[in-house]
């Protein structure tokens, strides 16, 4: 290596060094340690005690874990597609560039930018079992008031409504994706007599598949870890019907101080997220179209 190249290499390495140290200390190191904790019982007061596969055996019999996994699964597979569908639909409408688009976009974007704790408490209030906004809205259609967050059957739909309400982030990403589609393609299609639907089906949607895919991956990773709204609005209730993986890990780790078992749950969450993401990348080859490929 020439002295000049060597100097460049040293400078380069020095510049990424703070990040690299942080990666080792705050990410890689903790993950390795966490892989060890999985085999221990540890309540923080005494040193960790090696218990082999006991945590795994407990996990296999843990009814609460099964319920939680199911709840999280339902929440994820309903809220993410629903949110993306709404986001995509609205993005397509906004992309028509009718008058007032900027105003619509700003207003529709606001819910997603409301601080999550404010959103959670606002909807906690809206879903009041007595006479909140949700029940008032039902009243307009002559439907009797519901228990919402206090109703075993309605608590998950209620949480999904909160998630879908904040669809603005996905919408903005879709809009950026739409802007990336070359105008010339539409012009060419128009020359061939293509109408709105044909353009949507044959140009817009195929070219938007990378963006749809991105939103899907990010959405699933995020939804599977949902924590704050559940913690603040339901605490997992009623009767664990809204208990989610994030909250379960938190409970075991920071309320009951079962650090070993909480670590195992965190690894399970991680493996599920990785598996879902990998499956999506596999499936993506069949339906995601990249421009310039």
């Amino acid at each position: 290596m020439s002295p000049l190249r060597r100097k460049e290499a040293i400078n380069g390495f020095l510049s990424v060094l703070p990040w690299f140290i942080g990666f080792l200390v705050f990410t890689a190191g903790p993950m390795v340690y966490s892989a060890y904790l999985v085999f221990t019982r540890w309540e923080l007061i005494t040193p960790p005690e090696w218990i082999g596969f006991d945590n795994f055996r407990f996990l296999a019999r843990d009814q609460m874990f099964r319920t939680t996994l199911w709840n999280t699964f339902i929440y994820t597979v309903v809220s993410v597609p629903l949110q993306l569908l709404v986001a995509l639909g609205v993005a397509l409408l906004l992309n028509l560039n009718i008058r007032g688009t900027n105003v619509y976009r700003a207003i529709i974007f606001l819910p997603s930018q409301t601080p999550i704790v404010a959103t959670a408490m606002l909807w906690f209030f809206i879903f009041s079992p007595t006479q909140g906004l949700a029940n008032a809205a039902l009243g307009v259609f002559g439907i009797p008031p519901q228990g919402w967050l206090w109703d075993v059957d309605l608590v998950k739909p209620a949480l999904i409504v909160v998630a879908v309400w904040a669809f603005g982030t996905a919408m903005i990403i879709f809009l950026a994706g739409l802007q990336d589609i070359p105008q010339s393609l539409y012009e060419a299609a128009e020359l061939d007599g293509a109408g709105i639907w044909s353009k949507l089906r044959n140009i817009t949607l195929p070219l938007l598949t990378p963006t749809i895919f991105f939103n899907l991956v990010i959405g699933l990773i995020g939804a599977f870890q949902v924590f704050t709204p559940v913690y603040l609005m339901t605490g997992g209730g009623p009767g664990n019907s809204s208990m989610m993986m994030g909250l379960l890990i938190y409970r075991h780790g920071f309320e009951e101080f079962n650090m070993g078992y909480a670590s195992l749950l965190a690894w399970v969450l991680f493996l599920i997220v990785i598996t879902l993401t990998t499956i999506q990348f596999r499936l993506a080859r069949r339906w995601v179209y990249y421009q310039g490929d």
Binding site: F26, T27, P30, M31, L37, G246, G253
Partner: peptide, 19 residues
């Protein structure tokens, strides 16, 4: 570095707390 973008906070949360 990029792979870190995919890592859920939930996973490192407990060992980080220990640290």
């Amino acid at each position: 570095c990029l792979s870190g973008m995919m890592l859920p906070y939930m996973v490192t949360m407990i060992p980080q707390f220990v640290l």
